[in-house]
Simulated assay, not measured.
Amino acid sequence: MGMLYLIRHGQASFGEACYDRLSPTGEIQAALLADYFKKTNSIFDEIFSGNLSRQKKTAQILMQEMPDNIHATQLIQTPAFDEYDSEGVFREILPEILSENEKAASDFQNIIQDKGAFQRILSGLLDRWMHMEEGEYPLESWHEFRERVRRGILDLDLQGKKKILIVTSGGVIATCMHLFLEIPPKKAMDLSWQCMNSSMSIWIAKEKDFRLHAWNHAPHLEICGRQDWITYR
């Protein structure tokens, strides 16, 4: 049986002009994960990432910090493991929500300072996105995103006892929970908000069947004694 490790990227630069880059904390989280893999003698055959900067940088740190633990010498980048188009969701759907909902408009004023306001806004956006009609917005739909992730996972070669690392994002990890555990889409996406940066979700693969071994597993963060290194966005 093969094993698939889905790694959420390290902390990105929330609140800054360019979100899609690792923060200093994100780089530390990736290095701590690499150290954990070295200490546990975890060996991987291949490493993949999406094309987003925060995903690629996390994967590159893993490769740099534990070269003897990854047989592959090249990172395989594929859009299959990119996050859903969050910028597009905000750009296309947010104006409608703000015009319809006074509470949402109030939350939007505090979206950077207030994590609760950000989560309420994001929840409303994702609900609208996941129920959008075909062609309603110029965006990749939820159904298209889900199919992209499904194809990316099923196209992996996990025969024998291969172990594969994929550095991706919370939405992709949540979608796998939906696809392989049949968790309702909205509930699965809600789980993504609890997914820690640099955490592991581990799946055991037998042919095209995937069984969950661990979700949101982050011993490398729990043992470091630094609460500020445990982040969710």
Rank of each mutant, 00 (worst) to 15 (best):
G2Q: 03
Y5S: 10
I7T: 04
R8G: 02
H9P: 00
S13C: 15
C18E: 15
C18F: 09
R21A: 08
P24N: 13
P24A: 07
P24R: 10
T25K: 15
G26R: 01
A31Q: 09
D35Q: 14
Y36M: 12
Y36K: 06
F37E: 00
K38P: 01
E46P: 02
F48C: 06
R54C: 01
K56T: 09
K57I: 09
I61E: 00
M63T: 07
D68P: 02
I70E: 01
A72K: 05
Q74G: 02
I76W: 07
T78N: 11
D82Y: 06
E87P: 03
G88P: 05
F90S: 12
E92M: 10
S99Y: 07
E100T: 06
N101R: 10
K103L: 14
A104V: 06
S106I: 10
D107A: 04
I111P: 00
K115G: 04
A117F: 08
Q119P: 02
Q119Y: 14
R120I: 12
I121P: 01
R128H: 02
M130P: 02
M130T: 08
H131K: 15
L139N: 07
E140C: 01
S141K: 04
W142T: 03
H143N: 10
E144T: 14
R150I: 00
R150T: 03
L154T: 09
L154M: 10
L158E: 01
G160P: 02
V167N: 00
T168G: 02
G171P: 03
T175V: 09
T175W: 00
T175G: 00
M177H: 08
E182L: 11
E182P: 01
P184T: 08
P185T: 06
K186W: 05
D190E: 15
L191F: 15
Q194C: 12
C195E: 13
N197C: 03
S199T: 10
M200W: 11
I204A: 11
K206Q: 12
E207M: 10
K208W: 06
F210T: 08
R211T: 14
A214F: 05
H217N: 11
A218Y: 15
P219T: 11
P219S: 13
H220T: 04
I223R: 13
I223W: 12
I223T: 12
G225P: 03
R226Q: 11
I230E: 10
Y232E: 02
